[in-house]
Amino acid sequence: MRIHVDAQKCQGHNRCYALAPELFDVDDYGQAVVIGDGNVPPELVERARLAVANCPEFAITLSE
């Protein structure tokens, strides 16, 4: 599974970074960035799904 942040949609709500800091970081402006290549290890899939479901801007997607 791979996680992706749409930088055009992200408005810096910071929900993903709070829910899954292993998968997301934030830059100096508070914008979310995916850590590394966005690969989600099996033990973090549930948290990745939560990040997707809590993003107010629908900016995060999870794909195979």
């Binding site: 408005q11 810096g12 107010p56």
Partner: peptide, 23 residues
Amino acid sequence: RAENRHSAFGLGIHRCLGSNLAR
């Protein structure tokens, strides 16, 4: 409530600037 896509801090380009401090 684990899935909670609320918009308390607004939506779009005017997302509350102070949301991290408020939280």
